[in-house]
Design a protein around this nucleic acid. Structure first.
Lengths: 145, 145
DNA sequence: GAGGAAGTTTACGTAAACGTAAAGCATAAA
DNA sequence: TTTATGCTTTACGTTTACGTAAACTTCCTC
């Protein structure tokens, strides 16, 4: 069974980040470990938040943005009407940004595929001079993937 | 017809970046404008590269990573065999990273949808006290989207 | 009880990606 | 001719997200 509390190096090891980073995230109000004496004790929810922080980073989010998302999530159950409307607006904004990212990724993927094909073509040219392989054969190789 | 050369402020205006940024990108070897006297003259390919730089930023790429992608693309036609193999490796790496990003985005989208629903629920609660709307009605609203 | 490993705070350092003056040329309009 | 506009270089400042070192406790082991 997975434990319900974690040391700082437990988390650092599991997610391959430095303890320095984890302490920094706490300082920035993204994690809220309790203390036993001096040493930090991280909860299950803390662990989840850390995972989300790292996912945010992979998506190019600043820590401030990620914190804002956390707050959105938390306030989504407690706000006043005025608050909630603003919340909805922000959620829509984030969703739009994600759509944009999906487009960006799709285009980049196409370009990488194109570069990959170029690369295969070039390798082909070089190889053909030595092995006498035909275009035909490389088309097979290419489509095999 | 679209022009084939651009001033620095043309591009700054079109893509909503500062001239400072554009000069910085040149300094970092991401753009290569020619000069007429002192002033920079940007070509069509320069304009395309700028667009790609900004797309990279939206995806959380550093300028160094974007430059690496440019180089990948350029070298994809000129390299030696050893070069080309390394190139293929890097292309695969980028493609894997993009797959990861797609996963990350999908999960974030689910969470935003969830937050959105929470938010609608909360607004419902507040509204019901005043208007007497039923759960039933809000389900309709929610599904209408 | 002398390390050694893992935790802590404090604080200065750093790389990336610009922001923000300061000061100077060029050219077109008033 | 002056003034405004737009471009330039040089250079120091700023924010984010940590790295890195120093100096200190705590606990375990030998």
């Amino acid at each position: 069974m997975s434990p319900s509390t974690y040391s700082i190096s437990d988390l650092a090891g599991e997610f391959d980040v430095t303890t320095r980073s984890i302490r920094f995230y706490e300082d920035q109000k993204l994690l809220f470990p309790t203390r036993r004496g001096q040493t930090r004790i991280f909860s299950g929810p803390d662990r989840v938040r850390l995972k989300l922080i790292l996912r945010g980073k992979r998506l190019g989010f600043s820590l401030a943005e990620t914190r804002e998302l956390f707050e959105l999530w938390d306030e989504s159950t407690t706000g006043s009407m005025k608050q909630l409307e603003l919340l909805m607006t922000k959620i829509q904004e984030k969703k739009l940004a994600l759509e944009q990212q999906l487009n960006d990724i799709a285009m980049l993927q196409l370009e990488l595929d194109s570069a990959e094909n170029r690369c295969l073509d070039a390798m082909n040219e070089l190889n053909e001079e030595q092995t006498g392989l035909e275009q035909h054969d490389l088309a097979l190789i290419r489509n095999a993937k």
